[in-house]
């Protein structure tokens, strides 16, 4: 379980990225974090594993106060938090397998990791994960030889290799086409279901968020302005988060998208 209490982040330039953000995510809950660019979505998830150092407030993972940890203990805490990135952030020149195994770095000594002598159990598990995300035959390819969707699957496998208790997901679909975006979101949500993992997913595609996540938190200017189930996210709530806009048109477009996807699925089912 993750709980965030009164998290504040003020950058050195004086920009207040987060202003007293509080919420808790129970086991197995997938939270979609939406909001306009610059609302503090990225800052918020980076404060959770302290890639960005919060100015004040608390982040608790289970009983552990992440914000109070010294360096070494922070590294051990980060092992328990998997992270998936916007542009995949794979090590492009390493193989898919090395990328997945890099999720085990926190558990492996420097020399073993340098010589790529990971414990057999880790390697076995890495193959299981590659199988789960459908990339078994790509294990030995270099990461930069894969397509966008495949790379994001490697990113997911790397995060899962950590055996995390929490997933932080930063705009997982921002550089993917609509169909691949849905596949990746589905995969993430399914995996969270299987493992009872809580996850926080930054996402700017509201329709996609509503389709997949169980709960939506809306950020505006570093403050939570909406927190509820996807159904409760009506035009008034969207206006609170993003400002005035014709939200019914977006609804219709999303509806059309979903219908097209359903038609496509039926067509494929018909072919089979």
């Amino acid at each position: 379980m993750l709980s965030v209490e009164n998290l504040v982040k003020t950058y050195r330039t004086g920009d207040k990225a987060l202003n007293a953000v509080s919420f808790t995510a129970p086991k197995g809950q997938v939270v979609g974090l939406i909001g306009p660019s610059g609302a503090g979505k990225s800052t918020l998830i980076r404060c959770v594993n302290r890639l960005v150092e919060p100015t004040s407030g608390k982040v608790r993972l289970g009983d552990l106060d992440v914000t109070a940890l010294p360096r070494g203990a922070l590294r051990r805490a980060r092992r328990r938090i998997g992270m998936i990135f916007q542009e995949y952030a794979l090590i492009e020149r390493l193989t898919v397998m090395e990328n997945v195994l890099s999720g085990r770095l926190g558990y492996t000594s420097f020399w073993r990791s340098w010589l790529r002598r990971f414990p057999p159990a880790d390697i076995e598990n890495a193959f299981r994960l590659l199988d789960r995300v459908g990339l078994t035959e790509h294990a030995d390819k270099r990461a930069d030889a894969l397509s966008g969707g495949q790379r994001q699957r490697v990113g997911i496998a790397r995060a899962l290799a950590q055996e995390p208790e929490l997933l932080l997901v930063d705009e997982p679909t921002a550089s993917l086409d609509p169909k691949t975006s849905r596949q990746i979101m589905r995969l993430i949500v399914e995996i969270c279901d299987e493992r009872g993992l809580p996850a926080i997913i930054n996402i700017h595609d509201v329709a996609l968020a509503q389709q997949f996540v169980a709960r939506i938190i809306g950020l505006r200017a570093g403050a939570v302005v909406f927190d509820g189930p996807p159904d409760a996210l009506d035009a008034a709530a969207l206006t609170r988060i993003y400002g005035e806009e014709d939200w019914t048109a977006m609804r219709k477009a999303a509806e059309a998208d979903r219908e097209a996807e359903r038609d496509e699925a039926e067509r494929l089912a018909g072919l089979a």
């Binding site: 890639l51 952030a89 794979l90 770095l105 790397r158």
Partner: peptide, 17 residues
């Protein structure tokens, strides 16, 4: 690319790693 560094740090890797 700083994002790759961030990604490896996020796994709990040590400085030399």
């Amino acid at each position: 690319d700083a994002r790759q560094v961030e990604a490896v740090q996020a796994t709990g890797a040590s400085g030399p790693q």
